[in-house]
Simulated assay, not measured.
Amino acid sequence: MHSKPVRYLVLIDAAGASVARMFDEQLHQLNEIDGGSEEVAVMLRGLAPAHSAADPAWAQALRGHSAAERAAARVYTLDV
């Protein structure tokens, strides 16, 4: 069975800590890891965030986070 490729990585605050959430093209969450980990730094090397997660499309994917947390989040689009 093939796993879906990660298309977006979102760095978002969760209770004072940075969390990296990984999503597929349809904004289904695939994984979550510590946003300060070396793995995240390697994945994001050379990338700039495209936008915040304030767009309404992210509201369902990031439910449980406030509008302010979503607005402050950084969304990175990864090559697939």
Score class of each variant (00 low, 15 high):
H2L: 07
H2S: 14
H2G: 09
P5M: 04
P5H: 08
Y8W: 12
Y8D: 08
V10I: 15
V10E: 11
L11K: 04
I12Y: 02
D13A: 13
A14R: 15
A14Q: 15
A14C: 12
A14E: 15
A15M: 06
A15C: 12
G16V: 05
S18H: 00
V19N: 10
V19C: 06
A20V: 05
A20T: 06
R21F: 05
R21Y: 06
R21K: 15
M22Y: 15
M22G: 11
M22Q: 15
F23R: 07
D24H: 09
D24L: 10
E25D: 13
E25A: 14
Q26C: 08
Q26P: 08
L27M: 12
H28D: 14
H28T: 15
H28M: 12
Q29I: 05
Q29W: 08
L30M: 12
N31V: 00
N31M: 08
E32R: 14
E32Q: 14
I33T: 09
I33W: 03
D34W: 00
G35T: 02
G35A: 01
G35R: 02
G35M: 01
G36M: 00
G36V: 00
G36P: 00
G36L: 00
S37A: 06
E38A: 11
E38Q: 13
E38D: 13
E38R: 14
E38P: 05
E39H: 05
V40F: 03
V40N: 04
M43Y: 06
L44P: 09
R45D: 13
R45E: 11
R45C: 05
G46R: 11
A48P: 06
A48N: 13
A48E: 15
P49T: 10
P49N: 07
H51D: 10
H51V: 00
S52W: 05
S52T: 10
S52I: 04
A54R: 14
A54W: 02
D55S: 11
P56G: 00
P56F: 00
A57H: 07
A57I: 10
W58K: 02
W58N: 01
A59C: 02
Q60D: 09
A61P: 08
L62R: 02
S66E: 09
S66G: 14
S66H: 09
A67N: 00
A67Y: 00
A67S: 03
A68C: 02
A68H: 03
E69T: 06
R70A: 00
R70V: 01
A71H: 04
A71D: 06
A72D: 11
A72F: 02
A72T: 03
A72M: 03
A73N: 01
A73C: 03
A73I: 04
R74P: 01
R74L: 11
V75K: 09
V75M: 07
Y76A: 01
Y76C: 05
Y76I: 06
T77A: 07
T77S: 07
L78N: 10
D79C: 02
D79L: 05
D79Q: 14
D79N: 11
V80Q: 12
V80L: 12
V80I: 07
